[in-house]
Simulated scan of single mutants.
Amino acid sequence: MSNAPVRRTWNPFPELSDFFDSIGGFRPTLGNNIIRVEDEVADGRYIVRAEMPGLDPDNDINVSVNDGRLEISAERTDKKSDNGHSEFTYGSYRRSVTLPRGAKDDDIDASYAKGILTVSIGLGDTESSAKKIEVKKAD
């Protein structure tokens, strides 16, 4: 089990959820269309958990990998009727996570239970391949 931190690339436009979390308390004004995630490296796997309550994993959730990024998206539609009154909610959700070096895009499992999507991705060689280059004197 590795306790090494996961490397992330710097993004000049952080996720809105991270921005609003950092200034505290403004998140509810955006509604519920933000996917909150946590990630870790454990037992040679990169694990991402996404909070996505009330969704049907067969119809509402899409998970894909594209150019070293894990893409999670979902669409929710909900209609409630009670005594002649009806109300509906809908929204689309999307979150993208940069995969760590060595992530194997052919070794991915995803499961959904109790409102949490868990995606587990196998990791290969993550050791640095630094190499010293000899500088030759030109004539």
Score class of each variant (00 low, 15 high):
M1A: 13
S2A: 15
N3L: 15
V6Q: 12
R8D: 15
W10F: 13
P12Y: 13
E15L: 09
E15A: 14
L16R: 07
S17T: 12
D18V: 14
F19S: 14
F20M: 12
F20G: 05
F20Q: 13
S22N: 08
S22G: 11
S22E: 14
I23P: 12
F26V: 14
R27S: 10
P28A: 05
T29W: 09
G31C: 06
N32A: 02
N33P: 03
N33M: 03
I34F: 12
I34Q: 15
I35G: 04
R36C: 06
D39E: 15
V41I: 14
A42V: 11
A42T: 13
G44K: 05
G44H: 09
R45A: 15
R45G: 09
I47L: 13
I47E: 12
V48M: 10
A50Y: 05
P53D: 04
G54M: 05
G54A: 07
G54W: 09
P57W: 01
N59F: 09
N59L: 08
D60I: 06
N62D: 15
V63T: 13
D67V: 01
R69F: 11
R69Q: 13
A74G: 03
E75W: 02
K79T: 14
K79G: 00
S81F: 12
N83F: 07
G84P: 06
F88D: 10
Y90E: 08
Y93N: 07
Y93P: 02
R95F: 06
R95G: 07
V97D: 11
P100A: 02
D109G: 00
Y112T: 06
K114M: 03
K114C: 02
I116P: 06
L117W: 01
V119Q: 01
S120W: 01
I121H: 03
I121S: 01
G122N: 12
E127M: 01
S129G: 13
S129K: 08
A130E: 15
K132H: 08
V135M: 09
V135I: 04
